[in-house]
């Protein structure tokens, strides 16, 4: 009697978008070694999707609570730079360095959470401000050479850089970051769909008043999702710096956009209360495939900025229209059906 569920339909649409994109690029670029459709290229796409996907788990939570976090890119740079400092100036072991990085990420999240949930500053403006604060802090603690010029700090000890590599060490192998992605997505999805906390995230995003009435601490949930995003960011930063084998001040300049784009394409509605982590994963794969294809087509890489921006707006426009329509249908159907 319900026909197809709204969420299922939205999932099919994002999978369809990804499939169309893959087919399109396969036709345009071709299959086979060095082409679009090949094992190593598909792995490369998943690898590119990994860091945005990992951060996307946190972003998904944030957006489901009807928030937004624009500061993730800057937070990545800050986490990276904190680790670089520890690497350069202390003799602390690598795991401690990573731990410090994670703590930095959590702190960034806590700051965002406090500004948004406690001070009640509009999400986009609060995180826009922390975006510039985190980036500036990165510059403040940046590693400099004897002349005081900022340099990129190499972090090339093998017990760290292996994280940026593949498991078997060959270029065609499975990168560690993909495993981390899988772990984050699975745990992220389970937490979201199968724990009380996950249910609260939806409740807060869909109806704050009702959530409060049901005894949910709305402020705490909102704060927590930013802290979780901070954690995801720090893990993303570890894998990024491990792969680049260095930390720079410009790290993550693209990552303000990618996780949000991934979530939006994957069906996480900005109005809050809908979408999930798997959707964001599909969105991240879509974005990575898009980037990859644009590169392989020898187009100016700048086209990807245009395409991404346009796609986001189109998807959001579609979602807004679709949502309004489905709500109306549900209402009319309810009115007609009554007892049946």
């Amino acid at each position: 009697m319900n026909g197809i569920n709204q969420n299922t339909l939205r999932r099919l649409i994002s999978i369809g978008m990804l499939a169309v994109l893959l087919v399109l690029f396969t036709i345009l670029i071709g299959a086979g070694s060095g082409k679009f459709l090949s094992q190593e290229n598909l792995i490369a796409i998943v690898r590119d999707a990994s860091v945005p996907g990992i951060i996307g788990v946190g972003i998904t939570y944030v957006i489901i609570t009807s928030g937004i976090d624009l500061s993730t890119g800057s937070a990545i740079a800050l986490v990276g730079m904190v680790m670089a400092n520890i690497y350069a100036y202390t003799l602390l072991p690598i795991p401690i360095m990573i731990l410090m990085g994670i703590l930095t990420g959590l702190a960034c999240g806590l700051v965002n959470g406090y500004i948004v949930a406690r001070m009640e500053i509009p999400e986009f403006i609060g995180t826009l401000a922390t975006m510039s604060v985190f980036r500036a802090l990165t510059y403040v603690i940046a590693i400099r050479d004897v002349n005081g010029v900022i340099k990129s700090q190499p972090m090339n000890v093998s017990q760290y850089t292996f994280l940026g590599n593949t498991i078997d060490g060959t270029p065609s192998g499975l990168p560690y970051v993909c495993i981390a992605l899988a772990l984050f997505v699975i745990v992220g999805q389970i937490v979201l769909r199968h724990t009380r906390f996950g249910t609260y995230i939806y409740a807060v995003g869909a109806n704050k008043k009702a959530a409060t009435l049901s005894g949910i601490n709305v402020e705490r949930v909102r704060m927590m999702v930013y802290v979780i995003t901070g954690f995801c960011v720090s893990i993303g930063a570890v894998f990024t710096t491990a792969r680049l084998q260095s930390a720079t001040t410009a790290l993550g300049t693209d990552f303000e956009f990618s996780p949000i784009a991934a979530a939006v394409v994957g069906g996480v509605a900005l109005s809050g209360g809908s979408g999930d982590v798997v959707g964001t994963l599909i969105g991240a794969l879509f974005m990575a495939a898009l980037e990859n294809g644009v590169r392989k087509l020898d187009m100016n890489t700048a086209f990807q900025y245009i395409i991404k921006g346009v796609i986001i707006v189109l998807v959001v426009m579609f979602d807004a229209t679709y949502k309004a329509r489905m709500d109306r249908i549900a209402k009319e159907k309810g009115a007609k059906e009554g007892l049946e």
């Binding site: 969420n7 009380r196 869909a206 109806n207 009702a210 949910i216 209360g273």
Partner: peptide, 24 residues
């Protein structure tokens, strides 16, 4: 005060979900 994206059961037991360990 219902939460539209959740199921009927999730709404009925919001905040009092029966759990198996940590999972609902």
């Amino acid at each position: 005060s219902v939460i539209p994206p959740l199921t009927v059961a999730q709404n009925v037991f919001l905040g009092r979900e029966p759990r198996n360990g940590k999972l609902i």
